[in-house]
Amino acid sequence: EPELVFKVRVRTKDGRELEIEVSAEDLEKLLEALPDIEEVEIEEVEP
């Protein structure tokens, strides 16, 4: 069974934007590691 992958769009407080694809596990780590995120948009990517 393929692992869930999420497309994550992040905007930081200083206005930088970042778009990455991460696994569910990595997404959890990412959110814990970035306390200064202003906006996060997450969508599931079809395998």
Results as ranks from 00 to 15, higher is better:
38 E>F: 13
46 E>V: 13
44 E>V: 14
37 I>G: 07
30 L>M: 06
12 T>R: 05
36 D>H: 05
2 P>T: 08
22 V>M: 08
10 V>P: 00
36 D>P: 05
26 D>E: 10
41 E>C: 12
38 E>R: 05
40 V>I: 14
17 E>F: 14
31 L>H: 02
42 I>R: 03
11 R>D: 02
19 E>T: 13
31 L>Y: 05
13 K>E: 04
35 P>D: 14
7 K>P: 00
16 R>H: 07
4 L>E: 04
24 A>R: 12
17 E>D: 06
40 V>Y: 14
13 K>H: 06
10 V>S: 00
6 F>A: 01
34 L>P: 01
14 D>L: 04
28 E>V: 11
16 R>I: 07
25 E>T: 12
31 L>A: 02
47 P>M: 11
43 E>W: 15
24 A>Y: 09
41 E>T: 14
17 E>H: 12
21 E>F: 15
31 L>W: 07
11 R>P: 03
2 P>S: 09
36 D>R: 04
5 V>F: 13
27 L>S: 00
25 E>M: 12
19 E>G: 02
46 E>D: 09
18 L>I: 14
16 R>Y: 06
23 S>P: 06
9 R>P: 01
2 P>A: 11
37 I>V: 12
2 P>G: 10
11 R>Y: 06
15 G>N: 03
47 P>R: 11
9 R>V: 08
23 S>K: 11
2 P>C: 13
40 V>N: 02
22 V>E: 00
33 A>C: 12
16 R>Q: 07
40 V>P: 02
46 E>I: 14
16 R>C: 12
43 E>G: 07
31 L>D: 01
16 R>K: 10
30 L>A: 03
26 D>T: 05
34 L>C: 12
12 T>Y: 15
7 K>S: 02
16 R>V: 08
36 D>I: 03
1 E>L: 13
8 V>R: 00
4 L>G: 05
19 E>V: 14
3 E>S: 11
22 V>D: 00
18 L>T: 05
46 E>A: 11
30 L>N: 01
6 F>T: 01
31 L>K: 04
40 V>G: 02
31 L>V: 02
28 E>G: 09
35 P>S: 14
4 L>S: 08
25 E>C: 09
27 L>N: 00
17 E>T: 14
18 L>N: 01
6 F>E: 00
24 A>L: 11
13 K>D: 03
11 R>F: 07
6 F>R: 02
24 A>M: 12
43 E>Q: 10
39 E>I: 15
5 V>A: 05
5 V>H: 08
13 K>Q: 05
16 R>D: 04
9 R>F: 04
47 P>S: 10
20 I>E: 01
9 R>E: 01
12 T>N: 03
27 L>W: 04
32 E>D: 08
31 L>I: 06
18 L>D: 02
37 I>E: 04
41 E>L: 13
18 L>F: 15
6 F>H: 02
40 V>W: 13
30 L>T: 05
23 S>C: 06
19 E>R: 10
36 D>C: 10
31 L>F: 06
45 V>W: 11
8 V>L: 06
25 E>H: 11
47 P>L: 10
39 E>H: 13
13 K>F: 04
5 V>N: 07
3 E>N: 13
15 G>V: 00
14 D>P: 00
13 K>W: 05
43 E>C: 12
46 E>R: 14
23 S>D: 03
41 E>F: 14
33 A>V: 08
42 I>Y: 06
29 K>N: 05
5 V>C: 11
11 R>M: 04
42 I>D: 02
38 E>H: 07
42 I>E: 01
44 E>G: 09
9 R>I: 08
44 E>D: 06
4 L>W: 06
40 V>D: 02
8 V>A: 01
18 L>R: 04
47 P>D: 07
5 V>L: 12
32 E>V: 07
27 L>M: 03
7 K>R: 12
22 V>I: 08
42 I>K: 03
1 E>S: 14
33 A>F: 12
28 E>H: 11
6 F>G: 00
26 D>I: 04
7 K>C: 08
41 E>G: 04
30 L>W: 09
24 A>W: 14
45 V>D: 04
39 E>G: 10
40 V>H: 03
42 I>W: 10
33 A>D: 07
17 E>C: 13
3 E>I: 13
33 A>Y: 09
44 E>P: 12
46 E>H: 12
25 E>A: 13
32 E>S: 10
22 V>H: 00
14 D>F: 03
7 K>N: 03
7 K>I: 12
27 L>Y: 05
35 P>Y: 14
39 E>K: 12
3 E>H: 12
28 E>A: 13
21 E>A: 06
19 E>M: 12
23 S>T: 09
14 D>S: 05
41 E>Q: 10
26 D>N: 08
6 F>L: 07
37 I>H: 11
39 E>V: 15
39 E>W: 15
1 E>A: 11
29 K>G: 05
25 E>V: 10
11 R>G: 01
30 L>D: 00
32 E>M: 11
18 L>Y: 15
33 A>M: 13
2 P>N: 08
26 D>V: 05
30 L>P: 00
